[in-house]
Design a protein around this nucleic acid. Structure first.
Lengths: 207, 207
DNA sequence: AACACCGTAGACCACACTGGTCAATACTCA
DNA sequence: TGAGTATTGACCAGTGTGGTCTACGGTGTT
C-alpha cells in the first residue's frame, strides 16, 4: 500500500477498506472480485491499483488491519481476572459483539481467516496470526477457577462442551439475523435469552 | 434425466453422480463447473447434456437422490423408542457416520442443502425437503424422557445446549480429518473420546 | 498564461472459463 | 450392410477476471 492511500481522507479510506473486507470475507481470496470492490467503494478501477500494487497486496494489508482490530478491540479487552469460566466467556461474547457493532467487516474477515486453511500468508503476518491465536487462547482459558465445576468431571472436556454450546448459540443467532440491518435490531431480548442459556450451563456444570 | 442414464451400468452412473455431488457440495450451484464434473467423472462433455437436459436438471436429480439417501439411510433408522435424549443423539451420530462412510458425497451434499438458503427448488422437491426436516425433528426430539434431566432446568434449553455440544464435537472432528483418506482412519479412539464427552454431558445434565 | 504534477476514471486488454451445442465418429446388433 | 444409439471434444457466444494505460480535471508554482 502506498502512502497515497494513507493520505486519503478517512471516510474514503474506510469505504475502500470496508468494501474490500466484505468482498473477501464473503468470497475468499480467489473468488473475490476487484471489480465488485471498486463498484461498492465507489471509486474507479484504476485507483485501487494506484493505492495497492495488486490484489494480493491489498489482501495482506487487510489481514494486518483486521488482525489489529480483532486483537485490540476484542481479545485484549477480556478481563483475565474473572476466574469463572462461564462468566469469562460471557464477557468475551459481549466484547465480541461490541467489536462487531463497530467493525463488522473486519470481524467477519478475521473469522473467515481463522476458519479458512488455504490462504498462504507471508511470515510476518503468519507470526501476527500465531500471536493472536496464542493470546486468544490464554485470554479464554488461563487462570480459570476449576473448583467451581462439579466434582469428578473432566474439566478440559467441560471447557470444550461449554465452548461449543456458546459458539452454537452465537452461530444460530448470527445466522438468524443475517441480512437484517444490524442497527435496527433490538438485542436486549437476545441477551436475555443468552444469559438464560448461561444459567442452565452453570446449573449443570457447576455445583 | 433421461432413461438412457438409468440404463447405464451402475458403476458409471455412480461415477457421474459422485463427481457431480462433490462438485456441487464444494462450490454450490452457481460456482459448480460442469467441465470439472465431466473431467472427474471421466466422460465427455456431451454425455452429461445427453443424460440431463441442463445443469439445473442435473442438480434437481441430485437433490432427489441424496434426500432419499439421507432419509432412508440415516433419519429413518433412528430408534425413537430410546427415550434418553443423549443416547438418542449418540445413536444418531453413529448412524450418520455409517451413512457417511457409505455415501460421503450424498451426505455432504445434503448438508450443504440444509445450510444454504439461496437455492430455489421446485415444489415437489421443496415438499420432500420439508418432510425430511419434519421427520428429522421428530426422530431427534419426540418421545424424550424429560424426567432424566436435573430438576429445575429448562429442558428445551438443555436440548439445544446438548445439540450444540455434539454438533461442535462432530464439526471439529470432521474439520480435523478433512483431507484424510476416510478408509485409512481408525475411528475407535474418536468414538471413545466422543463417548467420554457424552458421559460428561450426562453427569452434568442428568441427576 | 504556462507548466508540471497528482488524483482520478473507466475503456480496454488478453485471458480463463462458463453452460451448452453439434458434427463426426465408434459401437452394437439385427 | 445398415439403422440406430452412445460417445467425444472442438467449438460457440457470452461473461468475468486482474491489471494497464491514456486521457482529463484540478491545483499550485512560476
Amino acid at each position: 500500500m502506498t502512502k497515497t492511500f494513507s493520505n486519503l481522507e478517512e471516510t474514503k479510506q474506510q469505504r475502500i477498506i470496508s468494501a474490500a473486507l466484505k468482498e473477501f470475507a464473503e468470497n475468499g481470496f480467489e473468488q473475490a472480485s476487484t471489480n465488485r470492490i471498486v463498484k461498492e467503494a465507489g471509486i474507479g478501477k484504476g485507483m485501487l491499483f494506484y493505492y495497492f500494487t495488486n490484489k494480493q497486496e491489498l489482501f495482506h494489508y487487510l489481514v494486518q488491519y483486521s488482525l489489529n482490530i480483532f486483537m485490540d478491540d476484542y481479545i485484549k479487552k477480556i478481563d483475565i481476572s474473572e476466574r469463572d469460566f462461564i462468566e469469562r466467556w460471557k464477557q468475551a461474547a459481549q466484547l465480541k459483539m461490541q467489536a462487531f457493532a463497530k467493525y463488522p467487516n473486519a470481524i467477519n474477515f478475521t473469522g473467515m481467516l481463522l476458519l479458512s486453511d488455504e490462504v498462504q500468508l507471508p511470515d510476518y503476518l503468519e507470526a501476527k496470526f500465531d500471536e493472536l491465536r496464542k493470546t486468544g487462547y490464554a485470554m479464554l482459558y488461563d487462570n480459570i477457577d476449576v473448583s467451581l465445576f462439579r466434582e469428578g468431571i473432566d474439566v478440559e472436556k467441560a471447557f470444550q462442551l461449554i465452548r461449543w454450546s456458546i459458539d452454537g448459540y452465537q452461530n444460530e443467532l448470527t445466522n438468524q439475523l443475517k441480512g437484517k440491518k444490524f442497527s435496527s435490531v433490538d438485542f436486549d431480548p437476545y441477551w436475555e435469552e443468552f444469559y438464560a442459556y448461561l444459567d442452565v450451563l452453570k446449573t449443570c456444570y457447576y455445583d
